[in-house]
């Protein structure tokens, strides 16, 4: 008993006080910074990108496909591609994840998330989510678990993962959606009461990511149902996830 108390006092409070302005380590690869004028069209980046996220003329990176591996940055001899440590990488529409030259952090924060009045009204104070791992590699899953740990403490905002879709206000999908998970995902969606939100978490869920050419996927679900939020990353950092959700519910 006393040992437990001692351990508790020794650990102190470790939660990040200001999630919205938390400091990220500079090595983190976040929002791409592109420079067209430095690009000499050598295509080294195109050849090395494992997911086809890059386009030239003008240079752009699709964060919905990008695994943030940094291979393009290493391959680029002219320094046209860089990654900042900006971690708020969520958007309410798919197109906004495509980053071109002029995109700054301020600009991206401003335009990426359009708060819908209805979502803010219904879920603004509390949002309970059911997570479905549809062939996710356990990277995003571990990071989503970390969202609820003592450092990130997502629960303080009234956002939690719940055990059943029946208790949930929405579902979070990770992974590229394998054929074998397609029906379970649909079942889960149907079991969630209306109104509900659908959130795609990570490059795999958004575009198939590194698995986009696999013959074992079945992504029809995404054509059928509306998606409310896209959260980029591979895997998604807990700060990216929490800030994305806070943005979605207008907080």
């Amino acid at each position: 008993m006393f040992d437990t108390l001692k351990s508790r006092i020794y650990q102190g409070n470790q939660f990040i006080k200001d999630i919205k302005n938390a400091q990220m380590r500079e090595q983190f690869r976040g929002l791409p910074k592109l420079c067209n004028s430095k690009c000499n069209n050598c295509e080294a980046c195109l050849n090395i990108c494992p997911t086809g996220a890059l386009k030239l003329n003008p240079l752009s990176i699709d964060m919905g496909k990008c695994t943030f591996c940094g291979a393009c940055k290493n391959a680029c001899k002219t320094g046209a591609i860089n990654f900042s440590n900006f971690y708020k990488l969520s958007a309410t529409s798919r197109e906004k994840l495509i980053i071109t030259e002029n995109m700054t952090e301020e600009e991206f924060s401003k335009v990426a998330i359009e708060v819908k009045k209805e979502i803010k009204k219904v879920f603004g104070k509390s949002l309970k989510l059911r997570q479905v791992s549809a062939a996710g590699c356990n990277g995003c899953e571990m990071e989503l678990n970390a969202c609820s740990n003592v450092n990130f403490d997502m629960g303080r905002f009234g956002i939690d993962f719940v055990a059943s879709p029946r208790h949930a206000d929405g579902i979070v999908i990770t992974g590229p959606i394998s054929k074998n998970m397609a029906y379970a995902l649909k079942d889960c969606y149907k079991s969630t009461p209306n109104p509900k939100v659908v959130i795609l978490c990570g490059a795999c869920a958004i575009s198939g990511g590194i698995f986009q050419n696999s013959s074992e996927l079945d992504r029809k679900f995404l054509e059928k149902y509306p998606i409310d939020l896209y959260i980029a990353g591979c895997p998604v950092h807990p700060l990216t996830f929490i800030n994305g959700i806070l943005g979605l519910i207008g907080r």
């Binding site: 291979a71 062939a135 394998s178 998970m181 590194i210 696999s214 074992e216």
Partner: peptide, 20 residues
């Protein structure tokens, strides 16, 4: 099991990368 099957061995044969 098998729900997670993504055919990764075939993908590596077709396009081997560290990211995969």
């Amino acid at each position: 099991l098998g729900y997670q099957n993504r055919g990764i061995e075939d993908l590596i044969v077709k396009h081997p990368t560290n990211q995969l």
